[in-house]
């Protein structure tokens, strides 16, 4: 910052123009920049109280609802332990007891991640949580699960131990049988390492973010047999 910057007179923003929200703008003021238009759409779609609400519908009252969050935080532990593993290189954990412990963290957090994700899936299935234009939420969740399984599988391939030798040998036949082995070679350690630590986690992360944003955007699905609160209001009004 130069001296002249500091010398420049400061114009105090008026309350009406200081708000970072679309509501902060004058109602008749239509955004003209890409940024402004994007912000307007974002604020209309996912305003802060929808993105980070302090209240939930009263029916959000079962332990089954915590398994989505448990899956996300498990993914955070999976990624964190994986990042520590990458720092030591691909063979570190065979030769260092600390490395082996970090590998154990990665192993067990993955087990927890899948346990929680499957319970989350069971819960959402029995709630038929795709109702009310929430099909995309289900679809992104399903894709996240499949991407996670593929990511997990490539992780098992790059353990560089007996298990990874064996499953590489076994699974190559599956990919070869439909021609995919030409593109994705499970017996190529280098290719599997890069897929596992870069492309696939990125894919899982992006799909999970979209999934969570969709959950916040649509809200939690109402119970299958909930009484419509609008009808109740109408009935009360009719009585009085």
């Amino acid at each position: 910052m130069t001296r002249s910057d500091l010398d420049r007179p400061v114009r105090v923003l008026q309350p009406s123009e200081s708000g970072g929200t679309a509501e902060g703008q004058k109602a008749d003021e239509v955004p003209t920049t890409w940024t402004g238009k994007f912000r307007a759409v974002w604020m209309r779609t996912l305003p802060p109280d929808k993105m980070l609400p302090e209240r939930q519908p009263a029916y959000v009252s079962s332990w089954i609802y915590v398994f989505g969050m448990l899956t996300i935080v498990s993914l955070i532990v999976v990624v964190a332990s994986g990042l520590v593993l990458t720092m030591g290189g691909v063979a570190w954990w065979h030769t260092s007891s600390i490395g082996h412990y970090v590998n154990s963290l990665h192993f067990w957090s993955v087990q927890l991640f899948f346990v929680f994700m499957v319970i989350h899936l069971w819960g959402k299935f029995w709630m038929s949580a795709w109702r009310g234009r929430r099909a995309t939420t289900w679809i992104t969740g399903a894709i996240a699960m499949i991407a996670s399984i593929v990511t997990g599988f490539t992780g098992y391939l790059i353990q560089s131990n007996f298990n990874s030798q064996w499953i590489a040998f076994e699974s190559k036949d599956v990919l070869n049988s439909v021609g995919l082995g030409a593109l994705i070679n499970v017996t190529d350690f280098g290719q599997m390492v890069l897929l596992h630590v870069c492309l696939l986690p990125l894919a899982v992360g992006v799909v999970v973010v979209i999934h969570v944003l969709l959950v916040r955007f649509r809200g939690v699905v109402p119970p299958l047999e909930a009484i419509d609160p609008m009808l109740e209001v109408a009935a009360k009004e009719a009585k009085s």
């Binding site: 980070l52 609400p53 302090e54 209240r55 939930q56 519908p57 009263a58 959000v60 009252s61 915590v66 969050m69 448990l70 996300i72 935080v73 955070i76 532990v77 109702r131 009310g132 234009r133 929430r134 809200g219 939690v220 699905v221 109402p222 909930a226 419509d228 609160p229 609008m230 109740e232 209001v233």
Partner: peptide, 25 residues
């Protein structure tokens, strides 16, 4: 279908998502 797809207007309860996340983590 309308009830499922329109924003919930019925009773609500306090639910702290970030606290839930911190405890879960």
């Amino acid at each position: 279908d309308d009830l499922d797809s329109r924003p919930w207007t019925g009773p609500t309860r306090r639910y702290d998502i970030l606290k839930e996340g911190a405890i879960a983590l």
